[in-house]
Simulated assay, not measured.
Amino acid sequence: MFVLDSRLQQDSLVLGDLELCRLLLSKDANYPWFILVPRRAEVSELFQLSAADQQQLWQETTRLAEALNGEFAADKMNVATLGNVVSQLHMHVVVRHRDDAAWPAPVWGKVPAIDYAPGQVEAIQQRLRALLGNDLKEA
């Protein structure tokens, strides 16, 4: 049974589910920072996914990154799976701008997180639903 890691629960907001992944938004308004978590039990490495799930993860990651790139006019899209702190397999998809708070360094811990203003998360969720269509379902 899939259970979202407690650290991911603490540090992010659930936006919905794609075919394979739960889509999260990092609780840091410094960056449009999204996280895809395959809804598979006890998976910490890419190679632990079936070949079909690996392909699906890459398709969802690519589609999300492409949509975000256009929507947020990215200078660069950062896509990575690291898992040194949270072992549950998850893919970071971060929109980067040359004038963001951490450019060009990684976003982790560079500056304190900023909370989203009221309504911002709902607006992002609506924009994603428009971009991803019926592929993004309620979690």
Rank of each mutant, 00 (worst) to 15 (best):
F2V: 01
V3Q: 15
D11M: 03
D11W: 05
S12L: 03
L13W: 08
G16E: 06
D17F: 00
L20I: 03
R22A: 05
L23N: 11
L23S: 09
L24I: 06
L24A: 04
L25N: 09
L25R: 08
S26G: 04
K27R: 15
D28R: 05
A29S: 15
Y31N: 06
P32A: 11
L36I: 12
P38L: 08
R39F: 03
R40T: 06
A41G: 02
S44V: 11
F47A: 10
F47D: 13
S50R: 08
S50K: 08
A52N: 10
Q56H: 02
Q56Y: 00
L57Y: 13
E60T: 02
T61N: 11
A65T: 07
E66L: 07
E66H: 11
E66I: 01
N69A: 13
N69I: 00
G70N: 11
K76H: 11
M77K: 10
T81R: 12
T81H: 09
L82P: 09
G83Y: 13
G83H: 13
G83I: 12
S87Y: 06
M91I: 01
V93H: 11
V95G: 05
R96L: 02
R96H: 06
P106W: 10
G109S: 11
P112H: 10
A113F: 05
D115K: 12
D115H: 08
Y116F: 15
A117T: 05
P118M: 03
Q120W: 02
Q120H: 12
I124M: 14
Q125M: 03
R127P: 01
R129G: 04
L131N: 07
L132E: 12
L132F: 11
D135R: 14
K137G: 00
A139D: 13
A139L: 06
